[in-house]
Design a protein around this nucleic acid. Structure first.
Ligand SMILES: [Zn+2]
Ligand SMILES: [Zn+2]
Ligand SMILES: [Zn+2]
Ligand SMILES: [Zn+2]
Lengths: 145, 145
DNA sequence: TAGTATATGAGAACGATTATCAGTTGCAAG
DNA sequence: CTTGCAACTGATAATCGTTCTCATATACTA
């Protein structure tokens, strides 16, 4: 496998730091992930990766996203529809609002919300470890005047 | 199929009102659901139903929960783990807190939380139709004193 | 009680994901 | 630079929850 330096990426650097073997396929998938700012599923990642290098099988994409998730590089999301979606963890902690008509996924964050959720958990005697929160809605019509 | 009146239930009554054919299997599943106050998956419902009447196949349980969901009798939940969980809609609108150690599912509700979520959606230009919210946490140790 | 539309049981089919395994490759040591 | 081997990959089978198929059975109406 030729080594194409143009495929280097922040995620590839993390792989090296962690001592993970950096194969051509892994470098390409890391590159694709590094320049993605959305929430692709495995099929979509497969499409983007094979567009760069067709010598990648879907099995390897599945293996790689699992590996990257275990290594804390990727976060797995489930917005319904039966397929896992992925985003890099460096996007930070946030929630999602999904437009039910278009499927568009938007991100938001809110400190008051986080505090409220932690407080509810605490009141029930729990330390909240993970929150899964998605809002599904439709675009509001402009209010007439 | 013999008609066992002891299996009548509020959900069976709803079926009758809606003009749905009330088969023996459906009556049994409705009975089991009416007296369940947890979040069983299809396997568990199948166990509970066949304990009452073994002449029920898992296919019919799948069909029935789907039908009941379409009819607004059941609400489908997904707490991870890959299998759908069900609860009757008459439990009302609420959220869930899952004990990650035991798997126990607890329910909670909070008006301030609902208002905050609706406000966040509105600020983003959306009318929130559905909210999916689950807290995953571990029991807090009692604070020493 | 008979007729018909609908439901059921058993198992095949499905779709996303994981496992298997023979062949390939990154990488480190010589 | 070669070599050696553990780790990786591609192709495809297996898995798992769920839905579909179809021949048979049943509830409800008249
Ligand atoms: Zn690119
Ligand atoms: Zn996101
Ligand atoms: Zn009972
Ligand atoms: Zn509930």
């Amino acid at each position: 496998m030729k080594t194409d330096d143009s495929l280097d990426s922040p995620i590839a650097a993390i792989c090296r730091e962690k001592g993970m073997k950096l194969t051509g396929q892994r470098r390409t998938i890391a590159h694709v992930l590094s320049e993605s700012d959305d929430h692709p599923d495995v099929e979509e990642l497969y499409r983007r990766a094979t567009a760069v290098d067709p010598r990648i099988s879907i099995a390897t994409v599945y293996r790689t996203v699992r590996l990257f998730e275990e290594q804390g590089i990727l976060r797995r999301r489930d917005f319904g529809g039966g397929r896992a979606r992925y985003e890099t963890t460096d996007h930070g902690d946030h929630f999602h609002l999904i437009d039910v008509d278009s499927g568009t996924v938007m991100e938001f964050d809110d400190e008051e919300l986080k505090a409220l959720l932690a407080g509810i958990g605490a009141r029930m005697g729990y330390e909240v470890a993970t929150t899964r929160l998605e809002l599904y809605g439709r675009r509001k019509k402009k209010k007439g005047r």
